[in-house]
Design a protein around this nucleic acid. Structure first.
Lengths: 354, 354
DNA sequence: CTCGCGTGCTAAAACGTACTAGCAGAGATC
DNA sequence: GATCTCTGCTAGTACGTTTTAGCACGCGAG
């Protein structure tokens, strides 16, 4: 079943040279070390003929670098986010010749340590540490022992690691601006209270997003109203909050939902109350969950850039790894923070107001 | 930044024994090879004190086994399916001390070969080859060269590999039976035609599922009606098919949608036509997509067991790997096919008919 | 006293690659 | 003819394990 792999010495033998010569040729260091062109050709030809592929395990043992990365996330819950991030990470890695080990902790710190150990045992060149849940957190020791990039995490203590994050503040601004500029005046938040200090439970993300919203509404001289905050950002909560907002008979122009699932619940409440979207009420949201485009009318939302985040974090990690730990002399200010935009998906749920 | 790992010889030195002795002790082969209890204790103590962890790369080079698996899928499209499968795979692997490399091909055969090569270069012990798209396909050569388990794939040529698949036929039966037993008579299929030979485009899966449905409807003496087949199983298609079904004014008791996204479209068409679910029309579906429970009324559906599939395939792979290629004497009939059920998620979209 | 045997351990080779140090031979120089 | 330099290559070691073959020692038996 398992055909034996061809080794370097077999190639060397076939080409009539020593293993070291073959190694030099195939590593592209032949010119530097004066191997004749004919010998080079013989080696390359032999390698091709035998279908030689270098054994990465062996090379890893020798050089210490395995061209392998780890991706550890906590997410089990909001699976699509995690899935897309992983996908982005894998793509970026692949493009630069790396493979990635994927691990999930479900938020369990012990499991996280075990996973990082298991990856370290396999000599990964570095890891991406990602989260979908708690955005501010302390870091495992392992993060200090190997090249690490934080994805969607704001570390509590250490400040030295490269971080890749969605630009929540800007997204909040953009969403509010979209509504303000289309003439909406009676804007209600769905999912968070009006006070950024208590924006919980999605901590930093929600808080930053809210601050962005507030800064724009303030500038526009608009009062801030919240339909109420929710512990879970799920459709039933969106439904409940929107229903009671409507029951209170306060004037409403637009709903600014803090994610698509809340928006889905809001849709249901609006529709069951006989209100039309966007003619009576506009709805804008965040995430661009798959179903956002399938709602009727299609939901206008700011896409959470999972894939881009995964890709970027991995690219940063590879940069870090390949730069080597020697060039530390702060060429990049260690602890750089990269913010990625949440692009607008303009669909049908926002109307122009007179 | 990077603290040096402790090696076996350091442990040995600390314990005052030879490296080979330390190896035997830590590998648990001490008793078999008569190492004194005191020496064993010294080794273990030293290992603990120094925080020794065996280098898996080195061990992999020596033994050929890296306790590493590969998971290669084609899916980019229906991401949640893939995500959950991967998650299941990772869990199962983790539980038995394996790590997994994840790769995605997007259906590109060349990329698939490259990924399998890259994994093979890293000496994975085996791979799970999964698909979300085309269920019947030919296999890359690499599959013959290392232990391989097929996930959601029915191979075209070779018949020898272990396969793990959802039990589509049974799910079709279950869905049809659910509707028949609750008294529905005017059942319409949404997404596929009534002829299993043309069940495309989801080939085997849809065909098997349809055959299951038909077998039950036939037994119940019910005529088979289809609202029409769709090239894409997405909400707009579900909406379109259901709308034209209703426009044709044929009597309809229940809709049997071939996935949740079609069902979502069907919901929209029914609601916009002023029909109530389930009072006027029952709806049943397949997949249990996250939004299924958030639709109003919550959708009754048969859950596609992605996670279980991933887990099972990985468990089978590890069994295969650990059994070794030597014990081939067909203890398990090579090419076993494991079918996993699609469990019913009974919610609110099906009513009892008089 | 010698032999044989059991006990407790170790030396050494192997896995496949990377890379340093250096060797052999040809030609050039004096 | 001896020395030097340059070209073209190779021997050998290291990476950190696993594993086989076998060594040294002490003790009991003959």
């Amino acid at each position: 079943m398992v055909r034996k792999r061809v080794t370097l010495s077999q190639v060397a033998q076939e080409a009539g040279v020593a293993a070291s010569t073959a190694s030099l040729v195939l590593a592209g260091r032949a010119d530097a070390l004066r191997i004749s062109v004919t010998a080079q050709e013989r080696v390359r030809e032999a390698a091709r003929r035998l279908g030689y592929r270098p054994n990465a395990v062996s090379a890893g043992l020798r050089t210490g670098s395995t061209r392998t990365l780890g991706f550890v996330s906590d997410s089990v819950a909001s699976s699509q986010l995690a899935g897309e991030m992983i996908r982005g990470s894998i793509e970026a890695a692949r493009a630069r010749g790396y493979m990635v080990f994927v691990g999930e902790t479900g938020g369990d710190a012990q499991l996280e340590r075990d996973l990082l150990d298991a990856m370290s045992d396999r000599q990964v060149d570095g890891v991406v540490l990602a989260t979908m849940l708690t955005h501010a957190r302390s870091l495992p020791d392992a993060a200090a022992r190997m090249p690490t990039v934080l994805l969607n995490i704001e570390p509590l203590g250490d400040d030295q690691l490269v971080r890749v994050l969605p630009d929540e503040f800007r997204a909040g601004q953009d969403a509010a601006r979209l509504l303000v500029e289309t003439g909406h005046r009676r804007i209600h938040l769905v999912g968070v209270g009006a006070d950024p200090a208590h924006a919980h439970p999605f901590a930093l993300a929600a808080e930053q997003r809210l601050r962005g919203v507030l800064s724009v509404l303030d500038d526009a001289g608009l009062a801030v109203s919240s339909a109420g905050s929710a512990a879970q950002w799920l459709p039933p909560e969106g439904f409940r909050l929107t229903s009671s907002l409507l029951a209170a008979r306060r004037p409403v122009d637009a709903l600014l939902c803090f994610n698509d699932r809340l928006a889905m619940g809001a849709y249901q409440a609006l529709q069951e109350a006989g209100l039309r979207i966007p003619d009576d009420v506009s709805v804008v949201s965040f995430d661009d969950t798959p179903f956002a485009r399938w709602l009727r009318p299609a939901l206008t939302t700011f896409a959470f850039p999972q894939r881009a985040l995964g890709r970027r974090a991995t690219d940063e990690l590879i940069d870090l790894v390949e730069r080597g730990p020697d060039s530390e002399p702060e060429s990049p200010p260690a602890g750089a923070r990269h913010l990625l935009p949440l692009p607008l998906r303009l669909r049908e749920s926002v109307a122009e107001r007179a």
